[in-house]
C-alpha cells in the first residue's frame, strides 16, 4: 500500500467517524423523556457553583487582606502642600525616586499633634515619638527584577502620577492592601479585575501595560527577538 493510499484510507476513516459525536446527543434526547429535567437542573446548578467558586471565591482566597498601619488621608494633605504629589514623593539628587515618605519628611509638621484625629494620634504616639519608621504597604511595589525610573517617565515623558497610580491623591482613606499568597506581590500589579479587563490606565501594572505604552510611544523598540522593547530597558 502506498503512502498516498494510506492517507486516503485515514481520511476515509475520519469521514466515517464524523457523525458519531452526535450519537450521545441522540441518547440524551431519548432519555430526556424520563430524567432530563433533574439532570439539566443538576448540570446548571453545578455550572453556576463552579463559576461562583472560580470567579468570586477563589480570587478572594488568592489574596491576603492587610490594613495599612496608619490610615493616611491624601486629600487633606494635598490641600495643605504647595507642590502637589512631589511635595512628599520627591526625587533624590542621584535620580532615584524617594517613593513613600520616611519619618524625616513627616517630622516638619507632625513632631507634635496638629489636630485631634485618632489616626494622627496613632502616628505621632506610636511612630514619631518612638522614632520608628511606619511599615507602609506599597501598593505599586514591583518585583525585584524590575527597574522603573520615575525620572524618565515624569521628567522626560512629562507623564502625570494619575496615569499609573490613579486618583489616590484624592482619597480620604487608604485602601486595604491585598497581596497574592503565592507570589507576595500586591494585587495592584495584576489588577482588581480577575479576568484582567482594564478600563483605566491605572487599573493594572503588569509588564504588558508598560510594554503597551512603550510600543505606542516607540520607546526603545530595539529588541532583536521581539521587535519590541529591549529587556534591559526595564529589567535588571
Amino acid at each position: 500500500m502506498s503512502a498516498e493510499d494510506k492517507a486516503n484510507e485515514v481520511s476515509a476513516d475520519a469521514q466515517v467517524q464524523e457523525p458519531t459525536p452526535s450519537s450521545p446527543d441522540n441518547d440524551a434526547s431519548a432519555s430526556s423523556d424520563s430524567a432530563g429535567g433533574p439532570i439539566t437542573l443538576f448540570f446548571i446548578i453545578g455550572l453556576a457553583a463552579s463559576l461562583v467558586l472560580g470567579w468570586v471565591i477563589f480570587p478572594q482566597l488568592l489574596y491576603s487582606k492587610k490594613k495599612q498601619p496608619v490610615d493616611f488621608n491624601h486629600k487633606l494633605h494635598m490641600g495643605l502642600v504647595d507642590e502637589g504629589c512631589q511635595s512628599c514623593h520627591f526625587f533624590r539628587e542621584d535620580g532615584t525616586y524617594s517613593g513613600v515618605p520616611k519619618l524625616a519628611q513627616c517630622m516638619d509638621c507632625h513632631e507634635e499633634m496638629q489636630g485631634d484625629h485618632p489616626e494622627e494620634e496613632k502616628f505621632v504616639n506610636e511612630y514619631m515619638a518612638k522614632d520608628l519608621e511606619v511599615p507602609w504597604l506599597v501598593y505599586a511595589r514591583q518585583p525585584d527584577c524590575v527597574f522603573f525610573p520615575h525620572a524618565a517617565h515624569v521628567k522626560l515623558a512629562k507623564m502625570d502620577c494619575v496615569t499609573c497610580h490613579g486618583n489616590i491623591g484624592e482619597s480620604e482613606n487608604l485602601r486595604v492592601y491585598e497581596a497574592n499568597w503565592i507570589t507576595g506581590y500586591s494585587r495592584d500589579i495584576w489588577g482588581k479585575n480577575i479576568a484582567g479587563i482594564k478600563r483605566n490606565s491605572w487599573d493594572r501594572m503588569k509588564m504588558d501595560d508598560c510594554s503597551e505604552c512603550h510600543q505606542k510611544n516607540n520607546v526603545n523598540q530595539a529588541s532583536v527577538q521581539t521587535h519590541k522593547g529591549g529587556c534591559f530597558v526595564c529589567h535588571k
Binding site: C145, Q225, G230, C231
Partner: peptide, 25 residues
C-alpha cells in the same frame, strides 16, 4: 546565544548593543 533561546530570556538590544539576560524568564 540569542538565536537559540526558546524563552526569549536573552535578547540583543540594538539601542545599546548589550545582550540581556532576564533571570525570571
Amino acid at each position: 546565544c540569542v538565536s537559540v533561546c526558546p524563552a526569549t530570556a536573552t535578547d540583543y538590544d540594538m539601542s545599546t548593543g548589550i545582550v540581556s539576560q532576564i533571570y525570571t524568564r
